[in-house]
Protein backbone atom coordinates (compact mmCIF):
# COMPACT_ATOMS: atom_id res chain seq x y z
CA UNK A 1 0.00 0.00 0.00
CA UNK A 2 1.31 3.44 -0.93
CA UNK A 3 2.20 5.65 2.04
CA UNK A 4 -0.09 8.39 0.75
CA UNK A 5 -3.01 5.95 0.65
CA UNK A 6 -2.14 4.51 4.06
CA UNK A 7 -2.27 7.93 5.73
CA UNK A 8 -5.44 8.81 3.85
CA UNK A 9 -7.16 5.68 5.21
CA UNK A 10 -5.93 6.33 8.78
CA UNK A 11 -7.23 9.90 8.50
CA UNK A 12 -10.55 8.60 7.16
CA UNK A 13 -10.85 6.22 10.14
CA UNK A 14 -10.19 8.99 12.65
CA UNK A 15 -12.50 11.43 10.85
CA UNK A 16 -15.24 8.84 10.84
CA UNK A 17 -15.20 8.66 14.66
CA UNK A 18 -16.30 12.29 14.77
CA UNK A 19 -18.68 12.25 11.80
CA UNK A 20 -20.51 9.30 13.35
CA UNK A 21 -20.17 10.81 16.83
CA UNK A 22 -23.28 9.31 18.38
CA UNK A 23 -22.55 5.77 17.25
CA UNK A 24 -18.92 6.15 18.36
CA UNK A 25 -20.15 7.30 21.77
CA UNK A 26 -22.59 4.36 21.95
CA UNK A 27 -19.88 1.84 21.01
CA UNK A 28 -17.42 3.20 23.58
CA UNK A 29 -20.13 3.27 26.27
CA UNK A 30 -21.06 -0.35 25.62
CA UNK A 31 -17.40 -1.44 25.69
CA UNK A 32 -16.87 0.50 28.94
CA UNK A 33 -19.99 -0.97 30.57
CA UNK A 34 -19.16 -4.55 29.60
CA UNK A 35 -15.52 -4.23 30.68
CA UNK A 36 -16.49 -2.74 34.04
CA UNK A 37 -18.96 -5.55 34.74
CA UNK A 38 -16.43 -8.23 33.73
CA UNK A 39 -13.57 -6.44 35.48
CA UNK A 40 -15.52 -6.05 38.73
CA UNK A 41 -16.37 -9.71 38.78
CA UNK A 42 -12.79 -10.69 38.03
CA UNK A 43 -11.55 -8.45 40.83
CA UNK A 44 -14.09 -9.91 43.25
CA UNK A 45 -13.04 -13.40 42.27
CA UNK A 46 -9.36 -12.46 42.57
CA UNK A 47 -9.93 -11.10 46.09
CA UNK A 48 -11.82 -14.19 47.21
CA UNK A 49 -9.02 -16.34 45.84
CA UNK A 50 -6.44 -14.24 47.67
CA UNK A 51 -8.40 -14.50 50.92
CA UNK A 52 -8.54 -18.26 50.58
CA UNK A 53 -4.79 -18.33 49.94
CA UNK A 54 -4.35 -16.39 53.19
CA UNK A 55 -6.53 -18.93 54.97
CA UNK A 56 -4.41 -21.68 53.47
CA UNK A 57 -1.32 -19.99 54.82
CA UNK A 58 -2.90 -19.78 58.28
CA UNK A 59 -3.75 -23.45 58.22
CA UNK A 60 -0.80 -25.22 59.80
CA UNK A 61 0.00 -28.78 60.79
CA UNK A 62 1.82 -29.79 63.95
CA UNK A 63 4.47 -32.55 64.06
CA UNK A 64 5.04 -33.83 67.63
CA UNK A 65 8.52 -35.09 68.49
CA UNK A 66 8.96 -38.35 70.41
CA UNK A 67 9.45 -37.86 74.16
CA UNK A 68 12.64 -39.91 74.34
CA UNK A 69 14.59 -37.58 72.05
CA UNK A 70 16.93 -35.03 73.54
CA UNK A 71 16.54 -31.32 72.74
CA UNK A 72 19.39 -31.47 70.23
CA UNK A 73 17.99 -34.58 68.52
CA UNK A 74 14.54 -32.97 68.36
CA UNK A 75 15.96 -29.84 66.74
CA UNK A 76 17.92 -31.92 64.26
CA UNK A 77 14.69 -33.32 62.76
CA UNK A 78 13.98 -29.83 61.34
CA UNK A 79 16.22 -30.29 58.30
CA UNK A 80 14.51 -33.61 57.44
CA UNK A 81 11.13 -31.94 57.69
CA UNK A 82 12.18 -29.12 55.40
CA UNK A 83 13.18 -31.72 52.83
CA UNK A 84 9.65 -33.17 52.68
CA UNK A 85 7.91 -32.11 49.50
CA UNK A 86 5.05 -29.58 49.79
CA UNK A 87 6.51 -28.16 53.03
CA UNK A 88 6.97 -24.42 52.71
CA UNK A 89 8.15 -23.53 56.22
CA UNK A 90 9.14 -25.29 59.44
CA UNK A 91 9.26 -23.67 62.89
CA UNK A 92 10.55 -25.51 65.94
CA UNK A 93 8.61 -24.95 69.18
CA UNK A 94 10.12 -26.31 72.38
CA UNK A 95 7.94 -28.12 74.91
CA UNK A 96 8.40 -25.18 77.30
CA UNK A 97 7.27 -22.63 74.73
CA UNK A 98 4.30 -24.82 73.85
CA UNK A 99 3.35 -25.12 77.52
CA UNK A 100 3.59 -21.35 78.06
CA UNK A 101 1.44 -20.73 75.07
CA UNK A 102 -1.06 -23.36 76.28
CA UNK A 103 -1.26 -21.77 79.69
CA UNK A 104 -1.67 -18.34 78.17
CA UNK A 105 -4.78 -19.56 76.41
CA UNK A 106 -6.32 -20.46 79.77
CA UNK A 107 -5.26 -17.33 81.61
CA UNK A 108 -7.77 -17.56 84.46
CA UNK A 109 -7.43 -21.28 84.98
CA UNK A 110 -5.13 -22.22 87.85
CA UNK A 111 -5.42 -25.99 87.34
CA UNK A 112 -2.34 -26.10 85.09
CA UNK A 113 -0.11 -24.05 87.38
CA UNK A 114 1.34 -27.10 89.15
CA UNK A 115 2.11 -29.09 86.03
CA UNK A 116 5.80 -29.35 85.05
CA UNK A 117 6.86 -27.47 81.88
CA UNK A 118 7.86 -30.79 80.33
CA UNK A 119 4.24 -31.96 80.14
CA UNK A 120 3.96 -31.25 76.45
CA UNK A 121 6.16 -32.49 73.59
CA UNK A 122 8.57 -30.60 71.41
CA UNK A 123 6.82 -29.81 68.17
CA UNK A 124 7.19 -28.34 64.72
CA UNK A 125 4.71 -25.87 63.21
CA UNK A 126 4.62 -26.67 59.50
CA UNK A 127 3.08 -24.63 56.70
CA UNK A 128 2.32 -26.23 53.38
CA UNK A 129 2.63 -25.04 49.79
CA UNK A 130 -0.50 -26.80 48.57
CA UNK A 131 -3.20 -27.43 51.09
CA UNK A 132 -4.94 -30.01 48.94
CA UNK A 133 -1.99 -32.39 49.52
CA UNK A 134 -2.24 -32.15 53.31
CA UNK A 135 -3.02 -35.84 53.85
CA UNK A 136 -0.07 -37.15 51.83
CA UNK A 137 2.29 -34.61 53.40
CA UNK A 138 1.07 -35.52 56.89
CA UNK A 139 1.80 -39.20 56.15
CA UNK A 140 5.29 -38.33 54.81
CA UNK A 141 6.03 -36.37 57.98
CA UNK A 142 4.73 -39.12 60.24
CA UNK A 143 7.09 -41.57 58.54
CA UNK A 144 10.13 -39.56 59.66
CA UNK A 145 12.07 -41.12 62.52
CA UNK A 146 11.52 -39.23 65.75
CA UNK A 147 8.06 -37.90 64.86
CA UNK A 148 5.51 -39.39 67.25
CA UNK A 149 2.36 -37.93 65.79
CA UNK A 150 1.05 -35.38 63.34
CA UNK A 151 -1.84 -33.05 64.08
CA UNK A 152 -3.55 -31.76 61.00
CA UNK A 153 -6.96 -30.09 60.80
CA UNK A 154 -8.03 -32.21 57.85
CA UNK A 155 -11.68 -31.16 58.01
CA UNK A 156 -10.82 -27.47 57.87
CA UNK A 157 -8.36 -28.05 55.04
CA UNK A 158 -10.94 -30.00 53.06
CA UNK A 159 -13.54 -27.30 53.67
CA UNK A 160 -11.18 -24.56 52.46
CA UNK A 161 -10.35 -26.53 49.34
CA UNK A 162 -14.01 -27.21 48.60
CA UNK A 163 -14.87 -23.52 49.04
CA UNK A 164 -11.99 -22.50 46.79
CA UNK A 165 -13.01 -24.97 44.08
CA UNK A 166 -16.65 -23.90 44.17
CA UNK A 167 -15.76 -20.21 44.04
CA UNK A 168 -13.29 -20.76 41.20
CA UNK A 169 -15.89 -22.67 39.19
CA UNK A 170 -18.69 -20.19 39.87
CA UNK A 171 -16.43 -17.23 39.03
CA UNK A 172 -15.25 -18.90 35.84
CA UNK A 173 -18.82 -19.64 34.72
CA UNK A 174 -20.06 -16.13 35.56
CA UNK A 175 -17.09 -14.43 33.85
CA UNK A 176 -17.52 -16.69 30.80
CA UNK A 177 -21.26 -15.85 30.61
CA UNK A 178 -20.53 -12.15 31.05
CA UNK A 179 -17.89 -12.36 28.33
CA UNK A 180 -20.28 -14.02 25.86
CA UNK A 181 -23.04 -11.51 26.69
CA UNK A 182 -20.57 -8.62 26.33
CA UNK A 183 -19.32 -9.85 22.96
CA UNK A 184 -22.93 -10.24 21.80
CA UNK A 185 -23.89 -6.73 22.92
CA UNK A 186 -20.75 -5.17 21.48
CA UNK A 187 -21.17 -7.02 18.19
CA UNK A 188 -24.75 -5.77 17.90
CA UNK A 189 -23.73 -2.21 18.67
CA UNK A 190 -21.01 -2.32 16.03
CA UNK A 191 -23.45 -3.93 13.57
CA UNK A 192 -25.87 -1.10 14.22
CA UNK A 193 -23.08 1.44 13.76
CA UNK A 194 -22.02 -0.08 10.45
CA UNK A 195 -25.58 -0.62 9.20
CA UNK A 196 -26.02 3.13 8.84
CA UNK A 197 -22.95 3.07 6.58
CA UNK A 198 -24.16 0.28 4.32
CA UNK A 199 -24.87 2.80 1.59
CA UNK A 200 -21.44 4.37 1.96
CA UNK A 201 -19.83 0.95 1.56
CA UNK A 202 -21.94 0.24 -1.55
CA UNK A 203 -20.78 3.54 -3.08
CA UNK A 204 -17.17 2.69 -2.31
CA UNK A 205 -17.59 -0.69 -4.00
CA UNK A 206 -19.16 0.92 -7.03
CA UNK A 207 -16.22 3.28 -7.62
CA UNK A 208 -13.84 0.32 -7.48
CA UNK A 209 -12.63 0.30 -3.89
CA UNK A 210 -11.11 -3.00 -2.83
CA UNK A 211 -12.34 -4.73 0.32
CA UNK A 212 -9.10 -3.87 2.09
CA UNK A 213 -9.52 -0.18 1.19
CA UNK A 214 -13.04 -0.17 2.65
CA UNK A 215 -12.18 -2.26 5.69
CA UNK A 216 -9.04 -0.38 6.75
CA UNK A 217 -10.70 2.84 8.03
CA UNK A 218 -13.34 0.75 9.81
CA UNK A 219 -10.64 -1.25 11.55
CA UNK A 220 -8.73 1.93 12.47
CA UNK A 221 -11.96 3.35 13.86
CA UNK A 222 -12.74 0.14 15.77
CA UNK A 223 -9.19 0.02 17.11
CA UNK A 224 -9.30 3.57 18.43
CA UNK A 225 -12.79 3.18 19.92
CA UNK A 226 -11.82 -0.16 21.48
CA UNK A 227 -8.66 1.28 23.05
CA UNK A 228 -10.57 4.33 24.22
CA UNK A 229 -13.27 2.11 25.75
CA UNK A 230 -10.63 -0.07 27.42
CA UNK A 231 -8.78 2.96 28.83
CA UNK A 232 -11.90 4.69 30.11
CA UNK A 233 -13.16 1.44 31.66
CA UNK A 234 -9.79 0.91 33.36
CA UNK A 235 -9.81 4.31 35.05
CA UNK A 236 -13.46 4.01 36.11
CA UNK A 237 -12.76 0.53 37.49
CA UNK A 238 -9.73 1.85 39.37
CA UNK A 239 -11.76 4.71 40.87
CA UNK A 240 -14.69 2.48 41.81
CA UNK A 241 -12.46 -0.17 43.33
CA UNK A 242 -10.45 2.32 45.37
CA UNK A 243 -13.63 4.02 46.61
CA UNK A 244 -15.25 0.72 47.51
CA UNK A 245 -12.19 -0.65 49.33
CA UNK A 246 -11.82 2.60 51.24
CA UNK A 247 -15.46 2.40 52.37
CA UNK A 248 -15.17 -1.30 53.12
CA UNK A 249 -12.02 -0.89 55.18
CA UNK A 250 -13.75 1.73 57.30
CA UNK A 251 -16.39 -0.81 58.32
CA UNK A 252 -16.10 -3.85 60.59
CA UNK A 253 -15.42 -6.09 57.56
CA UNK A 254 -12.16 -4.20 57.08
CA UNK A 255 -10.82 -5.80 60.22
CA UNK A 256 -11.61 -9.31 59.00
CA UNK A 257 -10.77 -9.35 55.30
CA UNK A 258 -7.66 -8.26 53.52
CA UNK A 259 -8.46 -6.57 50.17
CA UNK A 260 -5.87 -6.67 47.39
CA UNK A 261 -4.66 -3.15 46.53
CA UNK A 262 -5.50 -2.12 42.94
CA UNK A 263 -2.00 -0.74 42.53
CA UNK A 264 -0.64 -4.32 42.61
CA UNK A 265 -2.86 -5.18 39.63
CA UNK A 266 -2.34 -1.91 37.77
CA UNK A 267 -0.24 -3.14 34.83
CA UNK A 268 -2.02 -6.47 34.21
CA UNK A 269 -5.45 -4.84 34.54
CA UNK A 270 -4.51 -2.04 32.13
CA UNK A 271 -3.09 -4.57 29.66
CA UNK A 272 -6.21 -6.78 29.90
CA UNK A 273 -8.64 -3.86 29.54
CA UNK A 274 -6.79 -2.35 26.59
CA UNK A 275 -6.28 -5.79 25.04
CA UNK A 276 -9.96 -6.74 25.24
CA UNK A 277 -11.00 -3.27 24.02
CA UNK A 278 -8.63 -3.52 21.06
CA UNK A 279 -9.69 -7.05 20.21
CA UNK A 280 -13.40 -6.25 20.37
CA UNK A 281 -12.92 -3.06 18.33
CA UNK A 282 -10.84 -4.60 15.57
CA UNK A 283 -12.61 -7.94 15.41
CA UNK A 284 -16.09 -6.46 15.82
CA UNK A 285 -15.67 -3.87 13.07
CA UNK A 286 -14.12 -6.25 10.54
CA UNK A 287 -16.79 -8.91 11.16
CA UNK A 288 -19.64 -6.39 11.12
CA UNK A 289 -18.82 -4.98 7.67
CA UNK A 290 -18.07 -8.38 6.16
CA UNK A 291 -21.64 -8.81 4.90
CA UNK A 292 -21.71 -5.42 3.20
CA UNK A 293 -18.57 -6.18 1.23
CA UNK A 294 -20.18 -8.90 -0.87
CA UNK A 295 -21.46 -6.55 -3.59
Amino acid sequence: MKLNRFFYLIKEGIKSIFTHGFMSFASVTIIVACLIIMGSFSLLSFNIDSMISDMEQDNEILAFVEDELSDEEAMAIGTRLEAVSNVSSVTFVTRQEAFESFKAEYDDDTRFDDLPDTTLRHRYVIHLEDLSLVETTAQDIKAINGIADVGAELEISRAIITIRNIISLVSFVIIAILFVVSVFIMNNTIKLATYSRKEEIAIMKMVGASNAFIRFPFVVEGMILGLLGGGVAFFIEWGLYSLLTEKLMATIIGGIVNVVAFEILLIPMLAIFLGIGLLVGVFGSSVAIRNYLKI
Binding site: E199, E200, I203, K205, M206, V207, G208, A209, N211, F213
Partner: peptide, 17 residues
Protein backbone atom coordinates in the same frame (compact mmCIF):
# COMPACT_ATOMS: atom_id res chain seq x y z
CA UNK B 1 -12.52 -3.47 -8.05
CA UNK B 2 -9.96 -3.20 -10.85
CA UNK B 3 -12.71 -3.56 -13.45
CA UNK B 4 -14.96 -1.00 -11.77
CA UNK B 5 -12.17 1.57 -11.85
CA UNK B 6 -12.52 1.57 -15.65
CA UNK B 7 -16.17 2.54 -15.30
CA UNK B 8 -18.05 5.61 -14.16
CA UNK B 9 -21.51 4.92 -12.78
CA UNK B 10 -24.23 7.51 -12.17
CA UNK B 11 -27.40 6.64 -10.27
CA UNK B 12 -30.86 8.15 -10.06
CA UNK B 13 -30.46 8.77 -6.32
CA UNK B 14 -26.98 10.34 -6.78
CA UNK B 15 -25.40 8.08 -4.11
CA UNK B 16 -23.12 10.65 -2.60
CA UNK B 17 -21.51 10.23 0.80
Amino acid sequence: PKFRRTLGVIFQDFRLI
